[in-house]
């Protein structure tokens, strides 16, 4: 695991990413910087979800509960009890981890099939929505408005724009590196074994409960932390966005289009689809409302039909075909 992980960590690609991160954001107009930040939020969320959904093959829709906990609870703790948002982030992440462990235990205890797991997690997500909308402490249906971000790091403020970009970039990279680490560690092998054949995995002695709980806890805590950072960027904690199952359906879509179960697949999907959706809406939404949904849908359907395993495997295939040719022409 270490060798592969450190190989990835030492890759020169990160230097290019760092260089781009330093040079490009100050040049970008505010709107396009926002799209970049939004893309990084979804890169992080899709990569976090991939640990459970891609590697373990458990299509969890409960992740909106974890994102929502990170966003709404940390905001409420700050606004209602004066608890610093850094501490709120930790509290929310721990609570999300515990909820994740509970869901994984329920899955193990009742041996839920794929469909049952999806439905159970959807029910958890809906319960979360009902609780937030009905509980004044969490802002109810009106949501909560955070104080203006003045860049006070100790108060979990990053100054908006470029500051938010760096926070989201770090979270996106951390999420991807966690994916790389897990994929190349025993946990990754166990999760893939469970995904491919749970009964066989059990028969050869894989501790199903342990690894399912581990995957869900890591994924839930990471989602919660991203939720807290995302709400700080948005400033308005909107329950209809942050606790709604719609957010996780988008995340599942990005991961599927990019390539499920791969370290970079979900990130790839988010980096393609988030800007595409935003820019299409910006260009067409005002004059031809609804058309952007149609075009977006057609692109997604085309991608899924052409490459059911996701775009990343397709690109890898093209790349590997092109490389020997290049070698022989030399």
């Amino acid at each position: 695991m270490r060798q592969e992980f450190y190989k990835t960590l030492m890759s020169p690609v990160w230097l290019v990413v760092l260089l781009l991160a330093v040079v490009v954001p100050p040049l970008l107009p505010s709107y396009y910087l926002h799209i970049v930040i939004l893309s990084l939020v979804y890169v992080a969320l899709a990569s976090a979800w991939n640990i459970v959904g891609g590697m373990a093959g458990q299509i969890s829709l409960a992740h909106s509960l974890f994102i929502g906990t990170g966003a709404m609870l940390s905001t409420a703790l700050l606004l209602k009890l004066g608890i610093n948002m850094w501490l709120g982030l930790v509290i929310s992440a721990v609570i999300s981890g515990v909820m994740g462990a509970m869901i994984a235990w329920i899955d193990f205890r009742f041996r839920l099939g794929h469909l049952s797991f999806v439905l159970i997690t959807l029910a958890f997500a809906e319960m979360g929505t009902v609780i937030v909308e009905g509980w004044d402490f969490l802002g109810g249906a009106s949501g909560l408005l955070l104080p203006q971000d003045k860049g006070d790091f100790l108060a979990f403020q990053f100054g908006g724009g470029i500051g938010a970009f760096w926070v989201m970039l770090v979270l996106a990279i951390v999420s991807i590196l966690i994916n790389v680490a897990i994929l190349n560690a025993p946990l990754g092998y166990y999760l893939r074994t469970i995904r491919d054949n749970e009964n066989a995995a059990r028969a050869i002695g894989v501790n199903i409960l342990r690894y399912k709980v581990a995957a869900m806890v890591i994924s839930a805590m990471l989602s919660s932390v991203i939720g807290t950072a995302y709400v700080r960027y948005l400033t308005f904690a909107d329950p209809y966005l942050l606790v709604s199952p719609i957010i996780i359906i988008e995340v599942v879509l990005f991961a599927t289009v990019g390539g499920l179960g791969r370290a970079y697949g979900p990130a790839f999907g988010a980096l393609l689809l988030v800007p595409l959706g935003e820019i299409l809406r910006g260009k067409l939404g005002g004059t031809l409302p609804g058309l952007h949904y149609f075009i977006y849908g057609v692109v997604v359907i085309a991608v899924i039909l052409m490459t059911p395993r996701g775009l990343l495997p397709l690109f890898e295939k093209w790349f590997s075909r092109a490389r020997p040719k290049a070698a022989t022409t030399k």
Partner: peptide, 23 residues
């Protein structure tokens, strides 16, 4: 008049407003 559609989602209202103002 320069029109934009927020698709009934508050976060997108903010995005579209940013686009209208800056772009």
């Amino acid at each position: 008049l320069i029109q934009a559609d927020d698709t009934s989602q508050p976060a997108r209202t903010a995005t579209e407003a940013r686009r209208l103002i800056t772009e």
